[in-house]
């Protein structure tokens, strides 16, 4: 009789423990799942917004590279280290750069202009056209980026981009940021700090850095919203697209170039 009670007791305890373990294992999944669904992050972006940028080259200061530094910092590009044994100058040609300073001189007048160059977030992006696997894609809100799960590293997009905006990850990536994942053998480029935008923020790192320096050469915002700062600025004065002849309808516009 005692034996039977003991056995029953043990069975009850086992079942209770089992239930507790199961609950402990399943609950966070259920909770997390609910939490993710509840966040706007789970919602697809729409074309109600088109992110875009105006760069006023007249305000871009000679010798200033705060936008470049900010981009490198924001997107973890400064975490990439030169592989052992590689020459400095060769590595500099291989390391990814999402934004760079360019200084151009007019052939006739000799007028010199400074400007930052990055992905121009075309409405008709040649990189998206040529990508064999749809890894290179344009979001509904105008951001052109690379799906790092689909990129096979063929580099055809780098051949096709008229702005040389794309970089290839030439080395094993030891350190990276959660917001900017990357891996060896894939292509990447400026994505307008998409992690910020998806998080509800409305500025890019380069824009913030430029404003902090007091230059205010970069204005960023929703091109579809006629009241946004960028739309207003574009409406006020004329601007140009780089390689406008290609009719790509770029999301990045320039003034003073």
């Amino acid at each position: 009789m005692n034996n039977t009670q003991d056995t029953n007791q043990k069975r009850r305890q086992f079942l209770l423990k089992g239930a507790a373990v199961t609950a402990a294992a399943v609950a966070p999944g259920v909770m997390l799942h609910t939490a993710v669904v509840a966040k706007p992050l789970g919602e697809a972006v729409t074309d109600a917004v088109r992110w875009g940028m105006l760069i006023d080259a007249a305000k871009c200061a000679d010798g200033c590279d705060s936008c470049v530094q900010a981009c490198n910092d924001e997107n973890g590009l400064d975490l990439l280290q030169k592989p052992q044994g590689q020459a400095e100058d060769l590595w500099d040609q291989q390391i990814p750069k999402w934004i760079r300073n360019v200084k151009v001189k007019d052939n006739l007048s000799g007028h010199v202009t400074n400007l930052p160059m990055m992905c121009q977030h075309c409405e008709e992006p040649p990189c998206v056209d040529v990508c064999p696997t749809t890894a290179s894609f344009r979001r509904a809100d105008g951001i052109v980026m690379v799906d790092r799960h689909l990129c096979i590293g063929c580099r055809y997009c780098m051949m096709a981009c008229p702005y040389k905006a794309r970089s290839f990850v030439h080395d094993v990536v030891e350190h990276k940021l959660t917001r900017a994942p990357r891996g060896k053998g894939c292509v990447e480029s400026c994505n307008f700090c998409v992690h910020r935008l998806d998080d509800g923020q409305t500025t890019t790192a380069c824009q913030d850095a430029c404003a902090k320096e007091g230059h205010d050469a970069i204005t960023f915002g929703d091109l579809n919203d006629p009241h946004s700062e960028v739309s207003q600025a574009l409406k006020e004065q004329s601007s140009t697209q780089i390689r406008a002849d290609l009719k790509l309808n770029t999301g990045v516009r320039y003034r003073g170039v």
Partner: peptide, 12 residues
């Protein structure tokens, strides 16, 4: 990239 202009400095 810039017809009619010469690039005199570039980070890339």
């Amino acid at each position: 990239m810039f017809p009619g202009k010469t690039i005199i400095e570039s980070g890339f």
